[in-house]
Design a protein around this nucleic acid. Structure first.
Lengths: 101, 101
DNA sequence: GGGAACGTTCGATGAGCATCGAACAAGCAA
DNA sequence: TTGCTTGTTCGATGCTCATCGAACGTTCCC
């Protein structure tokens, strides 16, 4: 986890922030890919129909909402879904959202 | 249910639309009040810190997202959460959201 | 060292949305 | 009929946000 970036603590994760973060088709897709992937994924490994600056923006929104963590490895940043934190704070929410069509 | 208004059928309810509708503090509060109330509630019965035109707009968003139904009774419109439809389409979603802090 | 790859940040732009006031329609009561 | 209540619709306004291109800092590799 990159400590220079800001993440909300588990108890600070806000429901409206999470819903707003998930209420975007691209970010919802990102969370789906990250959650299905067993382990961390770099931004660049996920094919996106947007510029890398736009992708970076979406990752920032997910980070600041408390949905993902970032880990540095070289020039790459690997992202993981904060499953335990989200599940603890909003039980069943992520499952319901990711199961949804 | 007022047939002159447009509602998505159960199978047409879109996850992103639902998330976008819930990702607003006022609409989230509205859905909470409607869900906790046993039965239907008129718009005017819910105290809101906005104009009635703004409130009407939020109800329209909730309607078009498939979250609520409207019933007419005189000049009033009573709203109810489409529990069965939402639960059938996105099991556990509404419970997780409404349980959240 | 020089360059390539990766991701962030900044400024700008355009679209979408929350909000308001005013006008309107429908029903109810005196 | 005349008002009063309830809720919707319309136009305008201001803010937020998704998107892009360009510039920058890091890291890795030749």
């Amino acid at each position: 986890m990159i400590t220079t970036l800001a993440y909300p603590a588990r108890d600070e994760i806000d429901l409206v922030d999470v819903l707003q973060a998930l209420a975007d088709p691209m970010r919802l897709q990102l969370v789906r890919v990250l959650d299905e992937a067993n382990g961390a994924i770099a931004c660049g490994e996920i094919p996106l129909p947007v510029t890398k600056s736009t992708a970076s923006h979406h990752f920032k929104v997910l980070r600041e909402a408390g949905l993902v963590f970032a880990e540095e490895e070289g020039t790459r940043r690997y992202y993981t879904v904060r499953r335990a934190d989200i599940d603890a704070r909003f039980p069943g929410l992520l499952d319901a959202v990711l199961r949804g069509v």
